[in-house]
Design a protein around this nucleic acid. Structure first.
Lengths: 111, 111
DNA sequence: ATCTACCCATAGATAAACTATATATTCAAC
DNA sequence: GTTGAATATATAGTTTATCTATGGGTAGAT
C-alpha cells in the first residue's frame, strides 16, 4: 500500500508561511494552529515541521528568537520577513494555478 | 532553491486514473491528455509517468495490453479496472477533503 | 538519408515528508 | 514527592515520489 501522507505534499512551507503571516508563533503553536484551522484534517508531524522551519530560516523567509510563552516555557518564536511575505505570495499563486489545472483535468468534459 | 515540481506531488496517480476513466489510453497519450486538459500547466515527465503506471498495474488498478495506435505504432494501452474505479473515487474524495482543509488554513479569518 | 514526432522503460539523484528517538519543563493529580 | 500529560525543540534515519538523464526503437514526411 502506498503511504498516506498527513499533508498534501508540497504545501507545508506555504501553510507555515501563511500561519506566520497572521502572527509570530513558535513551532508547536504553528502545528496546533494548522491542525485546528483545518479541523484536524492536516497534521504536521514534528519530523516535518522542524526541518521545514530550518529550511525557511535558511532561505531568509522567517527569523527566529527565543522567548517565554504565556505558559512560562522557553520557545522559539518565528516571524515572517519581508522576503517571506513575498514568497508566500508566490506560493499562493502557484498553488492556485496548480489546483485550477488539476480541476480542469478532473472535470468530466473533454478539452 | 527548492526544486519546483511540474506537478503537485501526490496527485499523479489520481490524474492518471481519472484520465483512464474517460477512455483506455497508452502512456504517451495519457501524458498528452493531462498536459492538454491542464492548459500546459501540468507536465508529466516520462520518468514519473512510467513508474506510476507500473505502480498502478501492481496495485491492480489498471490493466494493460499491447495494441497498434491509429498512427500504426505499437503501444501499451491501459484500462481502468473495477478496483481502479473504486480507488479513483477514494482519491478524489481525499483530495477534495485536503483542498478544503488547506483552504480553511489559507483563509484570513481566525478559527 | 535525416529529422521529427511518436512510444516504452529504467537507473540514479533529489527533496519532502515520515517514524523514531532524545531532551527538557510546567503543572496538576495522586 | 513522584507520576503523568501537555508543552516545547530537535535530529537521525527511512521511505517515497518525482525528477533528470539515458537508453532503445518505429513511422512518416522532407
Amino acid at each position: 500500500m502506498p503511504r498516506k501522507s498527513d499533508l498534501l505534499p508540497g504545501t507545508l512551507d506555504m501553510l507555515i508561511l501563511k500561519t506566520l503571516n497572521r502572527a509570530p508563533l513558535h513551532g508547536y503553536g504553528i502545528a496546533l494552529s494548522i491542525r485546528r484551522m483545518s479541523d484536524d484534517v492536516l497534521t504536521v508531524e514534528e519530523g516535518s515541521l522542524y526541518p521545514a522551519l530550518q529550511r525557511l530560516l535558511a532561505q531568509g523567509w522567517v527569523k527566529a528568537e527565543w522567548k517565554m510563552t504565556e505558559t512560562n516555557r522557553r520557545a522559539r518564536y518565528y516571524t515572517l520577513t519581508a522576503a517571506g511575505r513575498k514568497q508566500l505570495g508566490i506560493e499562493l499563486s502557484q498553488f492556485e494555478e496548480m489546483i485550477a489545472a488539476i480541476t480542469r483535468v478532473l472535470r468530466d468534459q473533454e478539452a
